[in-house]
């Protein structure tokens, strides 16, 4: 067989193995992406009230002046604020587990359970836990406050409250001091922390920690470094690629997030305070049937995620892999 013939034969064999996956990819990923790029420039409406028309940049112009879009973008970013705490928590747990502690598997199993069971059932559970009147969380808070001498003090209204730690105003962009407090957004972030701290990121850190060369730490110890200095100057830089990966994935996931929480726990409320871009797209497309407009919002989301991915490509491999 000539070399060209062998090449062709190899290519055909490879294609036969790739065929099912590539077909699926073309039909359910690539085709739809191209389609969305087109749909975002039309007035496509599933109810067919108006005939389908090319509208140019109309959807994007509408979006730029759509207050709700900007408010929901802020909400989406607000939810990302849980990320540094989740990462710090995962790292702390991984450090505790990496000290050759007995019972590692037991701890790891118990701590991982919240992230295995995430989903509708667990969100319905948290909805009850957060109930301001008879939920156990406020019961604990109110008992504690009473014990401190604040009789009849009330806990936060959690999922029913528009308050937030940044005192963001309701239904407009801006600050309103009256909105300072704990509300629905904090409730969802705290639930996310519960699910994330012992989860996949913790496992990633745990694996990365076992790969930090022991000689480096021992050398630092001999030089009289304290445990904190050792962690700060030896371990933490060694963990940089892992941290970078976790942060990038966190951004990509977080920007698309918040749909389930909004759909299951709050309906996006109160007053839109827990509506993220993902939930907005869902509502525009599947309850208002404005497919063209929803596609435009989806493309903006795509652009944001693409920007994060570019940062990943640019810096991910070069500077952070030691």
């Amino acid at each position: 067989m000539t070399s060209a013939a062998r090449h062709r034969r190899n290519l055909l064999i490879a294609l036969s193995f790739l065929l099912p996956n590539f077909l699926g990819f073309l039909i359910f990923t690539l085709g739809p992406v191209v389609f969305t790029f087109g749909a975002a420039f039309t007035n496509w409406d599933l109810q067919g009230i108006e005939p389908l028309r090319w509208v140019g940049l109309f959807n994007f112009a509408t979006l730029a002046s759509d207050d709700r879009f900007w408010i929901y973008l802020v909400n989406t970013i607000y939810f990302l604020l849980g990320m540094p705490f989740a990462i710090a928590g995962s790292l702390a747990v991984a450090v505790l587990l990496s000290t050759k502690i007995r019972g590692l598997v037991v701890y790891r199993t118990l701590l991982y359970l919240p992230s295995v069971t995430s989903g509708v059932a667990v969100m319905l559970l948290w909805k009850v836990l957060y109930n301001p009147d008879f939920g156990p969380i406020n019961h604990l808070i109110e008992t504690f406050l009473g014990w401190l001498g604040f009789e009849n003090a009330k806990g936060p209204a959690w999922l029913l409250s528009t308050q937030n730690l940044f005192a963001l105003a309701v239904e407009r962009l801006g600050i309103d001091p009256g909105q300072f407090g704990l509300g629905a957004r904090e409730a969802i972030i705290l639930m996310g922390l519960w699910g994330a701290v012992g989860g996949g990121n913790m496992l990633l850190y745990l694996a990365a920690l076992t790969n930090v060369p022991k000689e480096l730490q021992e050398a630092a110890e001999l030089d009289g470094a304290t445990r904190w200095q050792n962690f700060r100057n030896v371990t933490w830089p060694q963990l940089a690629p892992t941290t970078f990966f976790i942060v990038v994935m966190g951004f990509i996931g977080g920007l698309q997030g918040g749909f389930e929480q909004a759909r299951v726990m709050t309906g996006g409320g109160p007053a839109g305070t827990t509506t993220t871009l993902a939930y907005y797209i869902y509502n525009k497309a599947f309850t208002e049937f404005q497919m063209g407009y929803a596609s435009a919002v989806a493309l903006v989301l795509f652009a944001l995620i693409f920007a994060v991915t570019l940062i990943n490509w640019k810096f991910g491999n070069k500077e952070l892999n030691y």
């Binding site: 290519l11 990819f25 739809p32 990509i252 698309q256 993902a278 989806a298």
Partner: peptide
């Protein structure tokens, strides 16, 4: 086969396409 790793890298890049962009179509 020729071009295998290039095709793979391209294919890998599609992992970052958010599901929300493909849902409506």
């Amino acid at each position: 086969w020729p071009g295998r790793d290039h095709v793979f890298r391209l294919y890998l890049a599609t992992m970052m396409i958010p599901g929300l962009v493909t849902t409506i179509p």
